[in-house]
Amino acid sequence: MFGQNQFSDINAHLNGMFAERGTLIAVHRGQPGGMLQENTIGALIAAERSGGDLVEMDVLRSRDGDYFMFHDGQEPQRFGFNHSLETFTSDEIAELSYEKRTKAPFYRVTRLDDLLDALPDRVILNIDRSWRYWADSDLLPWLGKRDLAPRLLMKVDAADAEAFEAARRAEVKFPLLPIASTVEQLDPIIRDPDLNVIGVEFVARDSSHPFCDREWIQGLRASGIFSYVNGLDLGNGLPMYAGWDDSVAILNGADAGWGPIVDRGVDVIQTDFTALLDEYLCLRGVRTRTPLHVLQTTEAISMFNTNRSAGPC
């Protein structure tokens, strides 16, 4: 069981997924493709149907305090301007559309509350980049009122002391996933009884890092903390995990890109290639095969359609 005993009820859903599936797959920004945009309800549904267990998505706050699903810094690629959406009001963000290859349909920037309403029962939402707002907003209390703590995994910079203090003050103890680049960053937080630290996301530039040592990872697991690794290639030349990533797996073979991660006994792998990683992990015997998913609720599809419009704004 991962996490401290006192938080076992909140962590039960995620622990049940580990028990059922083995190595879990986190899907980076959902599963975009074709007409589906990242960080949207459509990408969330596609991630679940592709076999993802956790869906990682980014949160951004508007100038007037509403929350949307968007990775700031992507404005030039998505909308053709250089202004951060954090400087826009919620009404202004709501007017923006993702334009794709055809004139219609257009896709809106998704509100956080709409995404939560559409969250499939089996999936855990891995919320990234929200920790920036914990200390000076009501985001954590607002999330707490939605009674979704067992379905959320909150990423947080392991060096952000203010964010952890906000998590300590929060009434609801959300499962936390610190993003760490050194072992020392974990010492003040990993055993804190007021923090529900359940896993650690590793950043390791080369294979000599302790985070790449199988025995160290096994020791972390034995202490009740799971390991989470990025198999992403962000295209910036900086390895997320010793250069073992999706691009290597696709171009040079899965054993070259994902094999070393599996060899080290990592518990969660984040990827942009959900179905291929799912197949590989099953072949390696560390994951049970994903059944063909049929979305059971109409709410998610309804919310997806709400975020589309028939023509330009």
Rank of each mutant, 00 (worst) to 15 (best):
S137K: 07
T306L: 15
D272G: 02
M17Q: 14
D263Q: 07
I41D: 02
S208K: 09
F2L: 08
V123T: 13
P76S: 04
C282I: 09
V197Q: 09
S97V: 08
L234R: 11
L139E: 11
Q31M: 12
L238G: 12
L14D: 08
P32Q: 01
R108P: 03
F211R: 05
D192H: 10
Y107E: 11
Q74M: 13
G235S: 06
L125V: 02
C212A: 07
G259V: 00
V266W: 08
A204S: 03
R29V: 09
G235T: 01
T110F: 10
P150H: 04
T306I: 15
R111N: 07
G285W: 13
A170H: 03
I179P: 07
R214L: 11
S309H: 13
N252H: 14
Y107R: 06
E184K: 13
S302R: 15
P105K: 09
R78V: 12
R221D: 10
F226N: 01
W258R: 09
E184Y: 04
N307Q: 12
L112Y: 00
K103Q: 14
L116F: 00
D136W: 09
E279A: 14
L220M: 06
M154V: 04
W134P: 03
R49W: 12
C282P: 06
L148C: 06
E95I: 06
T89Y: 08
I127E: 08
D187Y: 13
D53V: 05
M1P: 12
I190P: 01
L220N: 00
L24F: 08
F81K: 01
L195Y: 03
M35I: 15
A149V: 01
A180F: 10
S207L: 11
V262T: 04
L238Q: 15
R168M: 04
L281T: 06
S50I: 03
E171T: 10
A43F: 10
I93G: 02
F7V: 02
E299G: 13
H209G: 11
P260L: 06
E99V: 15
L232Y: 05
E171I: 02
F273S: 05
Q77W: 12
M17R: 10
V268A: 03
A167Q: 10
L276P: 12
G144A: 06
Q296W: 13
F7S: 01
P260D: 09
L139H: 07
L44K: 00
N39D: 07
L119D: 03
E162M: 09
L153F: 00
N230E: 07
D187V: 08
A275D: 08
Q296T: 13
I124R: 06
E75T: 11
L116D: 02
E56R: 11
A46V: 04
R129W: 03
T290P: 12
A256N: 09
L85P: 02
L24N: 02
N196W: 03
S62N: 11
L277P: 02
